[in-house]
């Protein structure tokens, strides 16, 4: 979720192999949600094993990540910890949307509208504690490192990028920029053809790279001010001012210089009402983005894949097709062989 800075940001289209040899911190919760949402049958039912347990997240993790390791990208998944108290309201709102979508999904199936059923089903995705644990076990078997963040996964991943423990962060959100990640990669895990919901249109989703410094330069503001813009627009931690989007937000903060002054200006205009959440909580929200709770990470290690362990986990436990799993594992084996390979242009 997070904020949408949309078109105000300059994105550089890249090929996956552009990131070859680089380590990338991936927002695990964000990725797993994507898998749960996208990897579904035509009527919206997720993939399940013989015991009726959902396996879409594991399928996504195995197959989508295999495309990354195939070109030599070194992924490290970063999992969310406990949510910040200010996020609880957002999370509750999301839960309500899911409950509503679940009812609408069932209705759509009864009505025979598969398109609608699938769209609604996608909004019902839930990532349980068990699913996260299964994902971590699979990553261990694949030889890929993961990090448990004390709080926000994106904050942790961004911090790792800012410390050069990894080359970039990967997420669909722009929040990583607020958290200070110097580089943000988008569309990494979902690269390929994607269908637009409710339309018979397929679009080509390509990876893109966003440079924080360049973004700030082109917007003419600093990171503290970008956080202020986000607070005005609304973040996961506060409701925004209705009617303020990325463009008007940047303009306001640039003119006023700071959130405090911008709020003063806004309060003079009748058409804007400033939510109490901003006036009372903004220093705290700023702190969440600028001084987030993170944990030290050193010496991330990528290991060779443990083929038997992966097969046991996916094929024995969850009835994945052995031949499909083995095909994906070939990519991980190739990755294992190239571990430690230096980039020629590092010299």
């Amino acid at each position: 979720m997070g904020i949408d800075l949309g078109n105000t940001i300059e994105k550089k289209q890249i090929s996956l192999s552009y990131l070859s040899g680089r380590s990338i911190a991936i927002d695990a919760n964000n990725a797993l949600y994507q898998f749960l949402s996208i990897i579904r049958q035509p009527d919206g039912t997720p993939l399940k094993d013989s015991k009726d347990r959902i396996t879409s997240h594991l399928a996504g993790l195995l197959y989508r990540t295999s495309n990354l390791v195939e070109v030599g990208i070194r992924p490290v998944y970063v999992f969310d910890g406990a949510p910040h108290p200010l996020k609880i309201k957002t999370l509750k709102g999301r839960r309500a949307i899911k409950e509503k979508a679940t009812i609408e999904w069932k209705k759509a199936i009864e009505a025979g509208d598969l398109e609608l059923a699938r769209t609604k089903a996608q909004q019902t995705s839930r990532l349980s504690k068990e699913m996260r644990e299964e994902a971590k076990n699979l990553l261990d078997a694949l030889g890929l490192p993961w990090v448990q963040a004390p709080s926000e996964g994106e904050a942790q991943a961004s911090w790792m990028a800012s410390q050069h423990e990894v080359y970039a962060c990967a997420s669909q959100d722009f929040d990583s920029l607020l958290f200070g990640s110097p580089l943000l990669a988008r569309n990494l895990a979902i690269t390929g053809k994607r269908k637009l919901p409710r339309k018979k249109v397929w679009i080509d989703v390509r990876p893109e790279l966003i440079d924080l410094e360049r973004t700030l330069k082109s917007l003419g503001i600093n990171r503290e001010q970008l956080v202020d813009v986000a607070i005005l627009m609304g973040t996961d931690f506060n409701e925004g001012v209705k009617g303020i989007g990325p463009k008007s937000g940047v303009k306001l903060i640039k003119q006023a210089g700071s959130l405090e002054k911008a709020l003063e200006e806004l309060s003079k205009e009748k058409k804007f009402s400033i939510p109490e959440e901003i006036t009372s909580n903004y220093p705290q929200v700023r702190g969440i983005f600028l001084n987030p709770e993170v944990t030290g990470v050193k010496n991330l290690v990528w290991k060779k894949v443990n083929k038997e362990k992966v097969e046991k986990l996916l094929c024995d436990e969850h009835q994945f097709s052995l031949s499909r799993v083995d095909n994906a594992l070939k990519k991980y084996e190739g990755f294992g062989k190239r571990l430690g390979q230096a980039d020629l242009f590092e010299f």
């Binding site: 070109v71 980039d343 020629l344």
Partner: peptide, 9 residues
């Protein structure tokens, strides 16, 4: 020429 993975030139 250099290969896409930047390993050899």
């Amino acid at each position: 020429a250099v290969d896409p993975a930047h390993i050899a030139l």
